[in-house]
C-alpha cells in the first residue's frame, strides 16, 4: 500500500516526513537520502550507511513542527553523537520513530508548497524558505495546473530573486529542476483530492546549484479521508 492510502486508511490528518517524501519522490521531487530507525543502535547503523555527518529527527504523526519542540539534531559527526541525540529525541512526546538523514550542504533555503483553496482549487507556492518564510512572507502563488513557464515566472517574482543566481561563490540554483518541482506539486494535488496542503520547507540549494527537499509535510483533508 502506498503511504498516502495507508495514512488515509488510519485516519491520519497528515503524512509524516518520511511518508511525505516517499510520495513526493514518486512524482520526481528530489529528496534527501534517509532511513527510519527505531532505537539509538539502529540510528547509528543507518548513519554509518548514509555517511557522516547526518541529521537526526524525531518523527511521528502528530509531530508537525519538529524544530519547535527541539526535535531536530543537525550535523552529527560520530556514532557517539548519534546515539546520544537519538536517546534524547525518543523522549519527546509524540516521537514514534527516528529519521536519519544525510546532512545537506548549502545555506540557501527555499520553500515550495501547495494549498487547496475552496474557490481557486489547488494553488502552488514558491518563495524564500526556512525561517525567512514566516519572517518575510516573500512568496508567490499560481493556480494548478502550472506550466513550466508559470513556474519560471514565479521564480522571477520573489523579492529575494538574487538567491537563485550565483551566490557567494556558489552555483546558481538549477531552475529547470525547481520548475519541475513546482509543476509536480500542482499535479500531485490534482491527482490526489485528499491532499489539503504540502510544505517542502526547506528545499535546499546545494553549493553546486542542485536542489533537494530536506523536510516535507503533507496534510490531509479529513472530509475527503472520511469518504473513503
Amino acid at each position: 500500500m502506498n503511504p498516502l492510502d495507508e495514512a488515509l486508511g488510519k485516519g491520519q490528518s497528515a503524512l509524516n516526513e518520511y511518508q511525505a517524501k516517499q510520495v513526493l519522490a514518486g512524482f520526481g521531487v528530489p529528496t534527501c537520502r534517509e532511513a527510519l530507525a527505531r532505537d539509538p543502535e539502529q540510528a547509528v547503523a543507518e548513519a554509518a550507511r548514509i555517511g557522516f555527518p547526518v541529521v537526526l529527527k524525531a518523527a511521528g504523526a502528530t509531530l508537525l513542527h519538529k524544530t519547535e519542540v527541539g526535535g531536530v539534531a543537525l550535523n552529527l559527526k560520530s556514532p557517539a553523537e548519534v546515539k546520544e541525540q537519538a536517546s534524547r529525541l525518543l523522549k519527546i512526546p509524540g516521537c514514534e520513530t527516528l529519521l536519519v538523514q544525510e546532512m545537506i550542504q548549502g545555506d540557501r533555503e527555499l520553500v515550495c508548497g501547495l494549498t487547496r483553496d475552496a474557490q481557486f482549487g489547488p494553488c502552488v507556492m514558491f518563495g524564500l524558505g526556512g525561517v525567512l518564510t514566516e519572517v518575510l512572507g516573500d512568496t508567490v502563488f499560481r493556480v494548478a495546473p502550472l506550466t513550466l513557464a508559470d513556474a519560471a515566472e514565479m521564480m522571477g517574482e520573489i523579492r529575494g530573486v538574487k538567491f537563485l543566481g550565483p551566490f557567494r561563490g556558489q552555483q546558481p540554483a538549477d531552475k529547470a529542476a525547481l520548475a519541475k518541482i513546482l509543476v509536480a506539486l500542482g499535479a500531485i494535488a490534482l491527482q490526489h483530492e485528499a491532499i489539503r496542503a504540502i510544505d517542502l520547507n526547506p528545499v535546499k540549494i546545494r553549493p553546486d546549484g542542485s536542489l533537494v527537499a530536506v523536510d516535507a509535510l503533507i496534510s490531509l483533508s479529513s472530509t475527503v479521508a472520511a469518504k473513503r
Partner: peptide, 19 residues
C-alpha cells in the same frame, strides 16, 4: 497547520491567478 496555507491569503492567490 501548513505554512503554505497560512501564506495563502485570498489576495496572494488572486495576484498569482492574474499574473
Amino acid at each position: 497547520v501548513a505554512h503554505t496555507a497560512a501564506m495563502a491569503s485570498e489576495d496572494r492567490l488572486v495576484d498569482g491567478l492574474l499574473r
